[in-house]
């Protein structure tokens, strides 16, 4: 009985993402604030990754993210394909990021998003992790913007699906795998150039 229940849970989990997005959108459109929180919790890292992929300064990044959520609220009940909420959010965030870049003199491109060490960790460990983190982030920042964006979407939690990327970035789904490999190679080369090799 217990085992059976477990299998049932797995089946639900595998259908989880699309089912819950559409159902949550419907519930939120009917005023369910808990459903709205579920949507934010599910997608806020993906939206953040999209905006960060455009090298906006912190304040602009926050504005673009908020504009994306406000636009979703004003579009509740009018989303054409609720199963593709992730693609809708990435598309909207990207369009708003490009708009802010086009319209704003206050945008200061930045590659260095402030990072604070975790005071709970021993100092020595912190320094090593800190240095590796910094090198990897610097390597990422040296990639062209379109490459950073794809890698950030794939590295989000949960990652963007190929379908979401295909819609939002307007590229054939079959090109994403090869691009992923190429951009990761590029990232690897940048890391090697900064003295970090993978076999260490």
């Amino acid at each position: 009985m217990r085992k059976h229940h477990f299998r049932g849970t797995l089946a639900v989990l595998s259908a989880h993402s699309t089912f819950d997005s559409a159902a949550s959108l419907r519930a939120a459109a009917n005023g369910d604030a808990a459903a709205w929180r579920w949507i934010v919790d599910r997608y806020s890292r993906l939206v953040w990754a999209t905006v960060r992929g455009h090298r906006l300064a912190d304040a602009d990044a926050a504005d673009v993210v908020q504009t994306t959520w406000l636009r979703l609220v004003e579009s509740l009940g009018r989303i054409d394909d609720p199963d593709r909420l992730g693609a809708w959010l990435v598309t909207t965030a990207r369009r708003e990021a490009l708009r802010v870049i086009a319209s704003s003199a206050r945008t200061v491109p930045t590659d260095d998003h402030g990072e604070l060490p975790d005071p709970q960790r021993p100092l020595e460990h912190r320094l090593l992790v800190h240095e590796r983190d910094t090198l990897l982030r610097e390597a990422l920042a040296r990639l062209p913007e379109s490459q950073q964006l794809l890698l950030r979407l794939l590295a989000a939690d949960p990652p963007a699906t190929y379908e979401e990327i295909s819609i939002a970035l307007d590229m054939p789904i079959g090109s994403i795998g090869p691009l992923r490999r190429r951009y990761l190679d590029r990232l690897r080369n940048e890391l090697a150039a900064s003295g970090i090799t993978e076999a260490q």
Partner: peptide, 27 residues
Amino acid sequence: LLGDLASVLARTDAVPGHVVDAAYAAF
């Protein structure tokens, strides 16, 4: 490598709390 990148970004470039709070409030 992608896993490393994901873990670094999760640690060092998490969504700021005020950004998530504003997203909740957007409703």
